[in-house]
């Protein structure tokens, strides 16, 4: 029974949502909305469970005087401060807006900017013309990188045109191929889950 119930729930919910998407049957839309509300409720409980896991792990670090106990302390303090500001004062209150504007926003932007540095070092480390294919990747990469920046025009007026052609012809063709095959693959995975063929996520891995 432990094995069958989750599969039955998945199948019924999956078929219901598919029917709702494709059909205008009165009542189905409300039912689908209700199912989505349930999903939000389940997500809230999952969040509580995950938050407990996070807090417990970092509390363990602190009590065990782990070498990163200070980091764990900082994490717990900021987590509880944000939770208290959001729950007790509301997300439009000054305390929460302060956290959002002065901590979350600059930290997020800093991390996004970090990708630029990692990208630079990855390009320096990995872009070697070791084979014909690698050389093609290297050359097209440089053309696109320079051609898409304003400096491309100054280097050679044809460079931006080449970059645009590369992006809109060979790149687009490849992207479309990957998108279409991924989409079919995604539909396949979803159908396999709905029909109960795939059930690893339920802790029912194959031998």
């Amino acid at each position: 029974m432990k094995r069958e119930v989750p599969i039955i729930v998945t199948t019924v919910a999956g078929i219901f949502m598919i029917l709702e998407y494709f059909h205008n049957i009165p009542g189905l839309a409300n039912g689908a909305k209700e199912l989505q509300n349930w999903a939000i409720l389940v997500a809230a409980f999952a969040l509580a469970l995950a938050a407990i896991n996070l807090a417990a792990r970092h509390l363990r670090n602190i009590t065990a005087r782990h070498q990163n106990a200070v980091h764990s302390g900082l994490l717990l303090a900021s987590m509880f401060a944000t939770v208290i500001a959001g729950i007790f004062f509301g997300t439009d209150a000054r305390a929460f807006v302060f956290i959002f504007d002065n901590i979350i926003t600059p930290c997020g932007s800093a991390f996004y900017a970090m990708a630029c540095f990692h990208l630079a070092s990855a390009a320096y480390r990995a872009f070697r013309a070791q084979s014909g294919q690698a050389a093609a990747l290297l050359i097209t990469g440089i053309i696109v990188m320079l051609g898409r920046a304003p400096i491309g025009d100054l280097i050679h007026p044809y460079l931006p045109k080449m970059a645009t052609w590369l992006m809109q012809v060979p790149n687009l063709a490849g992207m479309r191929a990957i998108m279409i095959s991924s989409a079919i693959g995604m539909i396949g995975v979803s159908l396999r889950i709905i029909t109960g063929i795939d059930r690893t996520h339920l802790g029912m891995g194959q031998e």
Binding site: L119, A120, A123, Y124, R128, A129, M145
Partner: peptide, 24 residues
């Protein structure tokens, strides 16, 4: 910000070229 982007791309290109010279 566009000037910064242009120079950034140039620098990365130079380093890629450095890497390849060394490799060959």
């Amino acid at each position: 910000a566009m000037d910064a982007q242009s120079l950034g791309h140039i620098l990365i290109t130079i380093f890629i070229v450095f890497g390849n010279i060394s490799y060959f």
